[in-house]
């Protein structure tokens, strides 16, 4: 008689792994929300992480924001000029920067710089048994490493987003000023005419969600790093890739929700 061997996997190997990882990640996120509310609080570590994430990202964010504003204005001018509508440039740029570019550019830069850093740092602590060392000395490593970093990214990415928006608008102003001789006050008056409170609120909400995503993905990947230095590299790399992917998914969802509220 031909006996069929038992199935090794519930669905397929890849699908099983995907669902197991999804379950693990959900548990990790739930643990974050549980631990974040329970004392003791690692206040000093949170402030240190805010400094590391915020202050150390400033040069890169400044440069990227400035170039984004400048180039976007420069590229938009010819199209508006065809209709004799270059006076709309400040409004157009402000809408683009505040509603989409500032949150997205900040999040993508932070995913690359901060997310990979978190993944690599926690990953290397994992493979060199530093996390185990914390556990056996009766210190909660999750609270010290994960909660502090996720809170720091959740708080600092919106701050960085506001800064990026400001720098990008300044870049745009310089371009408009050189070409149209528009004054500083008049540029910003026109720029903010088409921006509502809901637009700013939606952008801040997006940044908070992106910040949380960058922190939690980096920590999760680092915390589950295996196989020595190779695993650390993989953790850093997948932190960036998964964060970026999730940021775009969240962008679509939040834009849909904001539009439906409007």
């Amino acid at each position: 008689m031909n006996v069929k061997p038992p199935r090794e996997y519930v669905i397929t190997r890849r699908m099983d792994t995907f669902f197991i990882n999804l379950y693990d990640a959900s548990k990790f996120v739930l643990r974050f929300f549980k631990e974040v509310l329970q004392p003791p609080y690692e206040g000093r570590e949170i402030i240190r992480q805010c400094y590391e994430i915020g202050y150390n990202s400033l040069p890169l964010i400044s440069l990227t924001g400035f170039i984004t504003g400048l180039v976007f204005t420069k590229q938009s001018r010819p199209s508006l000029a065809e209709f004799g509508a270059t006076s709309w440039l400040p409004s157009l740029v402000a809408i683009a920067i505040i509603k989409a570019l500032a949150p997205l550019v900040t999040a993508l830069i932070a995913a690359g710089k901060v997310g990979s850093n978190i993944g690599a740092e926690i990953g290397s602590m994992k493979v060199t048994e530093q996390i185990d060392a914390m556990e056996v000395s009766a210190v909660n490593p999750f609270k010290f490493l994960v909660v502090s970093r996720v809170l720091a990214t959740t708080f600092m990415i919106p701050v960085l987003m506001c800064y990026t928006g400001g720098v990008a608008m300044f870049g745009s102003y310089l371009n408009v000023h050189v070409n149209e001789m528009t004054s500083f006050v008049s540029f910003f008056e026109q720029a903010f005419q088409k921006i509502s409170f809901l637009d700013i609120f939606a952008s801040l909400t997006k940044s908070i969600v992106y910040g949380f995503t960058i922190g939690i993905v980096g920590c999760y990947k680092g915390y589950h790093a295996t196989s020595g230095t190779e695993g650390v590299g993989r953790a850093a790399n997948s932190s960036v890739v998964i964060s970026m992917f999730l940021i775009f998914v969240e962008e679509i969802l939040i834009v849909q929700i904001a539009n439906s509220i409007k």
């Binding site: 060199t128 048994e129 530093q130 185990d132 060392a133 556990e135 056996v136 000395s137």
Partner: peptide, 18 residues
């Protein structure tokens, strides 16, 4: 956690926080 306060663990790699 309380039990671990009475238990010291010296790791092979030392596991110092670098």
């Amino acid at each position: 956690q309380e039990l671990r306060l009475k238990l010291g663990f010296s790791f092979q790699s030392s596991a110092l926080y670098d």
